[in-house]
């Protein structure tokens, strides 16, 4: 239904490259470009943190330089915490941890959710009812509560945080995937594929899936921003990333008591979370504008 325009295009035009056309449109989208820039910075900083390209070794304590304000000692660009650890280095590794949790959990949620949604929509009937009702049950829990429950069962830690966030966002992807599949399976090209005897799996993978990529891509970007917030929230409550491993949410919560004497300890992690979330949100909005022209300017 939403792909009607691109489906009716002559095949030649499609072959000229939907990717190039997409890039051309995307370049003129302000929020999308700001989003890409912020996300790019985030990824760059995180990768540097992951490769240990930080100003100081992560978690290295400098007992003589405790609670230095940014700029007080030039080497500590963003200051130090109560153990004399470099805030900038911790932020970089914290970003890497957050990004790792967010991308892996959203990847799992996307695969699992799309699988469930596509199967449900494609088969219809009873499997559809059962699968989507199961998703509704997961949906009935506020996301943070469900994540908390899963972390309670499995214990805190990196893998379990990823698993928890993945389970929380799977129903959303199932819903996003099911809609397009419902309308796509009635289209002529699917009927044509079936007529020439293509197996169902091939129809689903080669004909249906590529045509529902647009809403999925938008959803992935938005889900990444929620996953960042959820990870930071879980860590803030002490149930996500475990100390001494740095995390933005953890840095915020453990330094709350020091905010009055060392405001930079909450300002920078806070700013980092905000810009990261903002980046993925803007990117998602930009992608929606370009990929789904009906929504342009509405949100």
């Amino acid at each position: 239904m939403n792909k009607a325009t691109s489906l009716s295009q002559p095949i030649k035009q499609l072959e000229r490259g939907p990717l190039r056309e997409f890039l051309r449109n995307f370049r003129h989208n302000l929020s999308g470009m700001v989003g890409v820039t912020l996300v790019g910075l985030f990824v760059l900083i995180s990768v540097a943190g992951l490769l240990k390209l930080t100003p100081f070794p992560i978690l290295e304590q400098h007992p003589l330089d405790r609670l230095k304000a940014p700029g007080e000692i030039p080497a500590y660009i963003l200051g130090t915490d109560q153990f004399g650890r470099d805030v900038a280095s911790n932020l970089m590794k914290g970003g890497a941890n957050s990004l790792q949790v967010a991308t892996l959990s959203v990847l799992i949620a996307t695969l699992a959710g799309t699988f469930v949604g596509a199967i449900a929509g494609y088969l219809g009937g009873n499997p559809d009812t059962v699968l989507m009702r199961l998703m509704d049950i997961l949906f009935a829990f506020p996301s943070l509560l469900l994540a908390l429950l899963i972390v309670t069962i499995r214990g805190p830690g990196l893998e379990n945080t990823i698993l928890a966030i993945a389970i929380v966002y799977t129903p959303i992807f199932a819903r996003v995937a099911r809609g397009p599949v419902l309308s796509l399976k009635e289209t002529e090209f699917v009927t044509a594929a079936r007529c020439i005897g293509a197996p169902e799996t091939r129809i689903l993978l080669r004909h249906v899936l590529p045509n529902m990529l647009a809403p999925l891509i938008v959803q992935v970007s938005l889900a990444l921003s929620w996953a960042l917030i959820t990870e930071a929230g879980l860590s803030f409550l002490g149930l996500g990333t475990q100390p001494p491993e740095p995390s933005w949410g953890l840095m915020l919560s453990s330094n709350r008591g020091l905010a009055e004497i060392a405001p930079w300890l909450i300002m920078y992690p806070g700013l980092a979370i905000m810009l990261g979330v903002l980046g993925f949100n803007l990117l998602g909005d930009g992608l929606r504008d370009v990929l789904d022209p009906r929504m342009r300017g509405r949100q």
């Binding site: 949410g249 915020l252 905010a259 909450i266 979330v277 903002l278 803007l282």
Partner: peptide, 17 residues
């Protein structure tokens, strides 16, 4: 955009500060 990007734990911490 800003409102959606500021998680409540950040806003709460800032308000208390």
């Amino acid at each position: 955009m800003l409102g959606l990007a500021v998680p409540n734990f950040l806003l709460g911490t800032l308000i208390i500060y």
